[in-house]
């Protein structure tokens, strides 16, 4: 019993939340998005989420066993990683590649650094990055939600890919790339804002429904599990960037609202960027971090080659987090710290 008690210097602050509680809150907040995913993508959603969560938990358990570390499954962080990874991949992704991604996310993204709290990058995004690099074709094949009858609303893109057997459709963002490159009609995307809000478009498993993600985000804000700084900074900077782009050339750019509702921007703002381990600690740092993510995402979307840039922007800003923390180091009462 005594070895579990740690005594450190004052001042002592009573912590209301344990890691376990924080993670449980995040899981609850992700529940609406999960329900929407099951509604739109049926069995795909169930298979993917259960595979990812199971593999993540199992990988963490095995890693702890190998390193002879104390079992850390109780903090539920592996479950959250699994859910977020499953939410950020296309619904038609085969189960085995979800397994590979989950193992990579937890083993390489988290456990080799020394477990939760020591990882530099968001584990789920590390796993997704590995999947994108390895199975590019599978990661850009978008299944149409089961509730839509025809894919007529959004014409299919990329016919020249092989082995596509699922019914596919361009995501709003992929279509917007067409608009920029080949002068396709931007109105098709802008006319879909209602569908984007409810999630009736092609896209990653848990990212399509803006409504569900906003509900989850508000729950986290009310529970004070996350502070409002990062989500607000991400959404405001992305919105501002999109507004400027739209103002300059409305023919080639989507509406700012469409940009915010599409792709992974909302799930990133509320669930991925706010990961307490890989985000800065101070308020000013959080603003900078959020603005960085929003701006880089929009840069990739509007100027770059990839349709969605959330994953890369999060990973990039994760790398900057230690520097940001250093920049906005808190000054202790009574003077500047010795640097």
């Amino acid at each position: 019993m005594l070895k579990d008690l740690r005594v450190s210097c004052s001042p002592h602050i009573g912590q209301r939340y344990s890691t376990r509680q924080v993670m449980a809150d995040v899981i609850i907040a992700l529940a609406p998005a999960f329900l929407f995913a099951v509604y739109y993508f049926r069995q795909y959603a169930l298979i993917l989420v259960s595979t990812c969560v199971l593999t993540c938990v199992l990988t963490e358990w095995i890693c702890n066993l190998i390193c002879k570390k104390q079992d850390s499954l109780g903090d539920l962080s592996a479950v959250v990683t699994g859910i977020i990874l499953a939410f950020s991949v296309p619904p038609s992704l085969p189960w085995w590649s979800a397994v590979i991604g989950s193992v990579f996310a937890v083993a390489i993204g988290k456990m080799v650094f020394g477990g939760l709290g020591a990882n530099i990058f968001n584990p789920a995004m590390v796993g997704r990055a590995f999947l994108t690099a390895s199975f590019g074709m599978l990661m850009t094949t978008w299944t149409v939600p089961a509730t839509i009858d025809t894919a007529a609303a959004m014409p299919a893109v990329s016919v020249a890919s092989q082995n596509v057997d699922a019914r596919t459709q361009a995501t709003p963002l992929a279509w917007s790339k067409e608009v920029i490159k080949h002068k396709a009609d931007v109105k098709i995307v802008n006319g879909q804002i209602r569908e984007m809000f409810f999630g009736e478009v092609g896209g990653c498993l848990g990212e399509t429904s803006a409504l569900a993600l906003i509900i989850g985000g508000i729950y986290l804000l009310i529970r004070k599990t996350i502070s409002f700084h990062i989500p607000l900074a991400v959404l405001l900077s992305a919105g501002a960037f999109a507004a400027i782009a739209y103002f300059i050339n409305p023919e080639a750019n989507m509406l700012p609202l469409a940009h915010i509702l599409s792709g992974g921007l909302l799930i990133c703002a509320f669930f991925i960027a706010t990961d307490p381990v890989t985000a800065p600690l101070t308020r000013r740092g959080m603003w900078l971090f959020g603005i960085g993510i929003g701006t880089i995402t929009m840069l990739i979307r509007v100027v770059g080659e990839y349709p969605g840039g959330v994953m890369y922007s999060v990973l990039l800003m994760n790398a900057f987090t230690p520097l940001i923390d250093r920049l906005f180091k808190r000054v202790p009462a009574g003077g500047k710290p010795h640097v």
């Binding site: 690099a133 390895s134 199975f135 590019g136 599978l138």
Partner: peptide, 17 residues
């Protein structure tokens, strides 16, 4: 299905590590 990432620099660093 081949893991393309393993033939990229990522694969080299991860495997070496």
């Amino acid at each position: 299905v081949p893991w393309a990432a393993m033939s990229m620099p990522v694969g080299a660093f991860v495997t070496l590590g």
